Structures are given as structure tokens and as C-alpha cells.
Amino acid sequence: RRKSKRKPPPKKKMTGTLETQFTCPFCNHEKSCDVKMDRARNTGVISCTVCLEEFQTPITYLSEPVDVYSDWIDACE
């Protein structure tokens, strides 16, 4: 008699959501930077609500707010 092989359980999909508020690289306030994605103009704007620092970068249809933040961090270095 042959043993029946069980199929492995399906893999769980990533359910965690990406951050939309970030720590400002200038004033170091946590969750003080908000990202606005202007898909019509293909630009992402991130601004700090505390020190009013602002950064704008081009985006694509695949871009997420975390991509705008990482572009800002890269531009600071």
C-alpha cells in the first residue's frame, strides 16, 4: 500500500502594511513626515510637519511612499 502524500500548506502572504509616516532626517521627530503621491504629475512630495523641511522626487506608477522617503534619505547623504 502506498502512503498518500500531503500537499504542503499554502504560504501566507505578507499582510503587513508599509509605513506612511516617517522620521525626519533633519529634526529627528518620529512620524512627523507625510508623503503626498501626485500620480497625475508623477511626483512624490514628502514634508515634515515640525521643521517644515520638504522634498520632491519623480515617481512611477509602482512607487510607494517608502520609496519617496528613501529617495529623500539618499539625497541627504
Rank of each mutant, 00 (worst) to 15 (best):
V35L: 04
E30P: 10
P25K: 03
P65L: 04
T15V: 06
T43F: 12
F22V: 02
C76W: 13
V45L: 06
H29K: 15
E30W: 06
P8F: 13
T23E: 09
P10Q: 15
N28M: 04
R6T: 14
R41N: 12
Y61I: 06
K13T: 14
E64Q: 14
P25S: 00
T15P: 07
N42L: 12
P65I: 03
S47H: 08
I73K: 15
C27Q: 00
P9K: 08
R6A: 13
R6Q: 11
T15M: 09
S32Q: 10
V68R: 00
C33T: 08
K5H: 09
I73F: 08
P58K: 13
C51D: 00
D67H: 06
P9W: 07
D38C: 00
P10G: 07
T49P: 08
R2Y: 11
Y61K: 15
M37P: 01
F22E: 01
G16R: 10
P8Y: 05
L62Q: 15
K11D: 09
D71C: 11
D67Q: 15
E19G: 04
R2C: 01
R6S: 14
R1E: 02
G44L: 01
M14Q: 08
V35H: 00
S4Y: 07
S63G: 03
Y61M: 15
N28E: 13
L62G: 11
F22K: 10
P65Y: 07
R39Q: 12
G44V: 00
T57K: 15
A75W: 09
L52W: 06
T15I: 13
S32C: 13
T15Q: 13
V68M: 05
R2H: 05
I46R: 02
K36N: 04
K7P: 14
T23S: 13
V66G: 13
L62K: 13
I59V: 07
D38A: 03
E19D: 04
A75R: 15
T60K: 10
C76K: 09
C76A: 12
P9V: 15
S4C: 02
V68C: 08
S32F: 07
M37C: 02
T57V: 06
K12W: 02
A40P: 03
P25C: 12
K36S: 03
V66A: 10
P8C: 15
M14L: 08
G44P: 00
C76T: 12
T49W: 08
K7Q: 13
T15N: 08
C27S: 01
E64P: 03
A75E: 12
V50F: 09
S4G: 08
S4K: 01
E64K: 11
L62W: 15
S32D: 03
Y69C: 04
P8K: 01
C48E: 01
K7G: 08
Q56G: 09
G16M: 08
S70P: 01
N42A: 13
D71R: 15
P9R: 09
M14T: 05
M14Y: 07
R1S: 05
L18Y: 07
C24G: 01
N42P: 01
S70F: 05
T60S: 13
V45S: 09
Y69N: 01
G44I: 00
T17D: 14
R2S: 10
W72V: 02
V35S: 04
D38T: 03
F22C: 01
C33H: 00
K36I: 03
Q56I: 10
C76F: 13
Q56K: 08
K12N: 10
E30A: 08
W72F: 03
F26W: 05
K36P: 01
L18T: 10
K3C: 01
P9D: 14
D38F: 04
T17K: 09
E64G: 09
C27D: 02
V66F: 09
T60L: 05
C48P: 02
C51E: 00
P8A: 14
C51A: 00
N28Y: 06
L62Y: 09
T17I: 15
V45Q: 07
T20G: 12
P25V: 07
C51M: 00
L52S: 13
K12E: 03
T43M: 07
K13P: 09
D67F: 02
Y69R: 03
K31V: 02
W72S: 02
K12C: 03
V68Y: 00
N28T: 14
A40C: 05
Y61Q: 15
A75I: 03
D74T: 13
R6W: 03
Q21W: 15
I46W: 01
R39P: 09
A40L: 06
K5S: 10
R2P: 05
V45C: 15
K5I: 07
M37K: 01
I59K: 01
Y61F: 15
